[in-house]
Amino acid sequence: MRAYTPKDDVQKKSYYTDRFWVAPQVAKSEVSDDAVFAADLAAIKAKFDVLDAYIQVEQMVVVINANDNYSVLEFLKNECEYTQLSEMSAIDWLATEGKFEIFYQMLSMAKRKRVRIKCKIDEKEAIQSVEKLFRSADWSEREMYDMFGVVVNNHPFMKRILMPEDWEGFPLRKTYPLQGDEFAAWYEVDKIFGKEAREIIGPENRDPARIDRYDTQRFSRLGHEVPFGTDISQGEPDTPLVYQEKEGVFMVEKFDAEKSVVISDRQR
């Protein structure tokens, strides 16, 4: 198993840097370039604080205050014809800014436009649920809680959706190791057999390339199978495919490879 390296600083310190690599940036343009978006933005600005607004890939991005999220979405739904919430989730910026970014992707079928509403919250802060406005937010908010640990207020059923309910940790945070922390590594053993079974069952083998040529307890060579635990350091005999014991099977017809029919016509 590869040694575990802490990933708490994975965003601050990259493990490999190419001096000539420039991070690609999606070009931003002014909202005034698009008449429909400009009108929508003016309407939002009249009622709410807008921290930033721009157009990216033909979609308007509006950054608002986190405690306005319900009223802005309500306004967009009722007044601006953005009637669908096609996606929402969080982005982990804890290492660089100490904040989560929450985004709501809205679609207007009437205007054929998409708008993304963004806001930032602190790690321990909760956000208001928009489930009353859009039913699609129900599971999305639960998934956001499950994966990032962002608590959503006024949600009708605030529970984990994908991971087991007694899971510890939030897997999509950047600090969560891909192969799991100690809790994850022993989850099934602890739950089924209890913690005292850890020594008997042993740690997980996380190295998929691990092969021991002479280990006949865990590996066998196809066509050269030997009984469990045989010493094969001197080489092993060929073992042809055997379907039945040599002396035949009680009350079962002897399988004759010569007489068996091989179907070569796939359409038969």
């Binding site: 897997p171 891909l178 192969q179 799991g180 994850a184 099934e188 069952i201 997980e204 083998n205």
Partner: peptide, 18 residues
């Protein structure tokens, strides 16, 4: 057998653990 290509936090690395 081994967890296969899913070398992640959510997959049991072989049913013989259970």
């Amino acid at each position: 057998n081994t967890g296969g290509m899913f070398n992640t936090y959510a997959t049991v690395q072989g049913v013989d653990r259970v």
